[in-house]
């Protein structure tokens, strides 16, 4: 049955929906944590330290963090593999395009595929920039996340990459959340307005929330 589930287009869509919702849940938690940056380096760095001792004393040092990382990595991979396989199938199902074409779907719907690729590349850059420090602009300081964030958003390209990616994320979440609800069978006529409102609210709050950080650095609120 597990094999048949993955073979079906519906099964793959369900995998995409569930992993997408896991990632939206993570984004909400990530945003809440990040908001501590507006309360000074002491509070933000203490939060960064807590992430490593999360779940203590049950969990060993950094175990909580690694569990979260493994779950997220699995979610990203399953989401991307399903999207790739489904997209290839979709393209094959319409080998001959219409001569007369007109743009119809909403921008968010049309950009799901390339928007997803942009988000995947962003995640790689984001980790290399602020987790490992490999591509960090200033001198990356382990254990000083506040300073590292300020350094990243003190460069023009750091701001551009981040803000573009967050706009792409907002649109992806807007169509993705509502679609996940349909894929998992939760939508209907009566619930639709509420589901669309939640999708829009999630998209706006996540996008505005994350973009407030580089804006904070640019305007000197965070320095």
């Amino acid at each position: 049955m597990a094999f048949g589930f993955w073979q079906s287009t519906l099964g793959k869509k369900i995998v995409m929906g569930v992993t997408g919702l896991i990632m939206i849940g993570y984004l909400c938690a990530h945003l809440l944590g990040n908001m501590k940056i507006f309360f000074g380096p002491g509070e933000f760095n203490a939060y960064g330290h807590w992430l490593r001792v999360m779940g203590a004393p049950v969990l060993h040092h950094e175990w909580g963090l690694w569990i979260a990382r493994i779950v997220l990595l699995a979610a990203v991979i399953l989401h991307a593999v399903s999207a790739y396989q489904l997209s290839r199938r979709d393209i094959k199902a319409r080998p001959q395009k219409y001569v007369h074409t007109k743009p119809r779907m909403s921008y968010a719907t049309r950009t799901m595929r390339w928007g997803g690729v942009i988000l995947g590349l962003f995640i790689v850059w984001h980790i290399l920039d602020l987790t490992t420090g490999t591509t960090h602009s200033g001198g990356f300081q382990e254990g000083h996340p506040y300073q590292n964030v300020v350094d990243t958003f003190s460069t023009w390209y750091g701001n551009v990459i981040y803000i573009v990616a967050m706009l792409a994320m907002g649109m992806h979440v807007r169509h993705g959340f509502w679609s996940a609800a349909q894929t998992l069978g939760a939508g209907n006529h009566t619930r639709d307005r509420a589901l669309k409102a939640i999708a829009n609210a999630l998209a706006i709050v996540l996008t505005a929330g994350f973009i407030s950080i580089p804006v904070g650095v640019m305007t000197g609120v965070v320095s």
Binding site: K13, L86, A93, T109, M112
Partner: peptide, 20 residues
């Protein structure tokens, strides 16, 4: 659904064009 997949139809991306 298995037959629908076997016929080579694409998958749903909730674009809504069908219902329109």
């Amino acid at each position: 659904v298995a037959q629908m997949d076997a016929e080579g139809f694409g998958g749903c991306t909730l674009a809504g064009e069908c219902a329109t």
